[in-house]
Amino acid sequence: MNSINIYENKTLKLQNVIVRRLDLESDDQNLFDSEINKISTYIQTHGANQIGPLIQYSKVELDENNEPDINMQFMLQANNFIHNVEQPYRMESLLRVKNCLYARYNGPDDKLKFAYDKLGVYAFENDIELDGCNYTIYVDRNEEEETMVADVFMPVKE
């Protein structure tokens, strides 16, 4: 059954997070899958194991020419902190994002945007100002039915 449930004042807490900022200038359609596999392999080759699902961070800001600058990052958690991480990766021992609007999305893969839309409408209706970024956690995926469960966190502007 399709659903989007909204909650206020939630905290996103991630530990031992390896982060990779994506270069969206590339035209490679397989960029996302390729980068996720590279991050996972990097974790394994440095003596750790991936725990939990993929986390995608995104934020759109305007650059000096008033053009949109999209900051997209993939994040994976590891069971251990990896020291001496090389570029293009960085390692965060703890990432805590407080006071977020949160949505649990259950539905078709291609309709996930409705969770972002619903959070935006909820914020508008309740006079909540969001800071403009979001974290999407891809909790589960049913390949046969092409459905997914995803958690979306949108921090509230302080």
Rank of each mutant, 00 (worst) to 15 (best):
D23S: 11
S26P: 09
Q29H: 15
N30L: 06
D33A: 12
D33G: 15
E35D: 10
I36V: 15
I36F: 11
I36Q: 09
N37E: 09
K38G: 06
K38C: 07
K38Q: 10
I43P: 00
T45V: 14
G47Y: 00
A48M: 01
A48H: 00
G52T: 02
G52C: 03
P53L: 00
L54N: 12
I55N: 07
Y57P: 12
Y57N: 11
K59P: 10
E61N: 13
L62G: 12
L62K: 14
D63K: 04
E64W: 07
E64C: 11
N65F: 06
N66C: 12
N66R: 12
P68H: 02
D69S: 06
I70C: 02
N71M: 10
N71Y: 10
N71W: 06
N71A: 11
M72N: 07
F74P: 09
M75N: 04
M75I: 02
A78E: 01
F81Y: 15
F81K: 14
N84D: 10
V85D: 02
E86S: 15
Q87K: 11
Y89G: 07
R90C: 12
E92G: 06
L94C: 08
L95C: 15
N99L: 00
C100E: 00
Y102T: 03
A103D: 05
N106K: 10
N106P: 08
G107K: 02
P108G: 10
P108T: 09
D109A: 02
D109Q: 00
K111S: 09
L112V: 10
K113L: 14
A115M: 05
A115S: 09
Y116K: 05
Y116W: 03
K118N: 02
K118Y: 02
G120L: 03
G120E: 02
V121H: 00
Y122H: 13
Y122Q: 11
F124K: 15
F124D: 15
N126T: 13
N126R: 12
D127P: 14
D127M: 14
D127G: 14
I128Q: 03
I128L: 03
G132A: 01
C133P: 01
N134H: 12
N134M: 10
Y135E: 00
T136I: 09
V139F: 13
D140G: 08
R141A: 09
N142V: 00
E144W: 03
E146A: 06
T147A: 05
A150M: 02
D151C: 08
D151V: 07
V152T: 04
V152N: 01
